[in-house]
């Protein structure tokens, strides 16, 4: 196995990437980690700056939010990785942003003010993972019944459910 290139090496190799260059110039210090794996660029953003970072990459030409989802890395901390897939129609490129959320304060800023399409996706992440989104206009369960207890896609939730 090759050693994973460090964050600085990835940022240097993709210095001409518009998302990276505008994030480095307008939000220095927001990029916590950078990975380039299987031709896909992943930038881990400080979770307090995710909304501003989304505004910055939208201004850099990444015009469409395609998907918001989450990965539960239980039992390691920070536990939740909220993942945003963003597409640029003009550059014909994709970008993945990630925000790490710990299990003590499971909340992150909502990006519905930047992209209204995040509405249903963030409701889904709240419903299935229990990650709260600050500033979301309507954070209700979307898949499970309203009175459901627990968040089924968490790794400590049994596949067969509680019996």
């Amino acid at each position: 196995m090759n050693a994973t290139p460090s964050k600085d090496a990835v940022l240097e190799a993709h210095a001409q990437n518009q998302a990276i260059s505008s994030l480095l110039s307008s939000l220095p210090g927001s990029i916590q980690d950078a990975k380039f794996d299987r031709n896909e660029l992943t930038l881990t953003i400080d979770k307090d700056q995710i909304r501003t970072a989304c505004e910055v990459v939208r201004a850099a030409g990444y015009n469409m939010l395609v998907d918001v989802t989450c990965v539960d890395w239980y039992p390691s901390e920070p536990r939740f990785q909220v993942t945003y897939h963003i597409l640029s129609h003009s550059l014909k490129e994709r970008l993945r942003l990630a925000a790490m959320v710990d299990s003590i304060d499971t909340s992150v800023d909502s990006i519905t003010p930047v992209w209204p399409s995040a509405n249903f996706y963030e409701r889904e992440v709240w419903d299935l993972f229990g990650v709260r989104f600050h500033g979301h206009p309507n954070l209700r369960r979307i898949m499970m019944p309203d009175e459901w207890e627990g968040h089924p896609l968490r790794k400590d939730y049994p596949v067969e459910g509680y019996r």
């Binding site: 299987r38 990965v71 897939h85 993945r96």
Partner: peptide, 20 residues
């Protein structure tokens, strides 16, 4: 180990699979 997002044009639009 790794994560990928693969999208295709399904009859209804962009269908994507995010596999970790």
């Amino acid at each position: 180990a790794g994560e990928v997002y693969q999208a295709i044009e399904s009859p209804r639009g962009e269908m994507g699979y995010y596999v970790v």
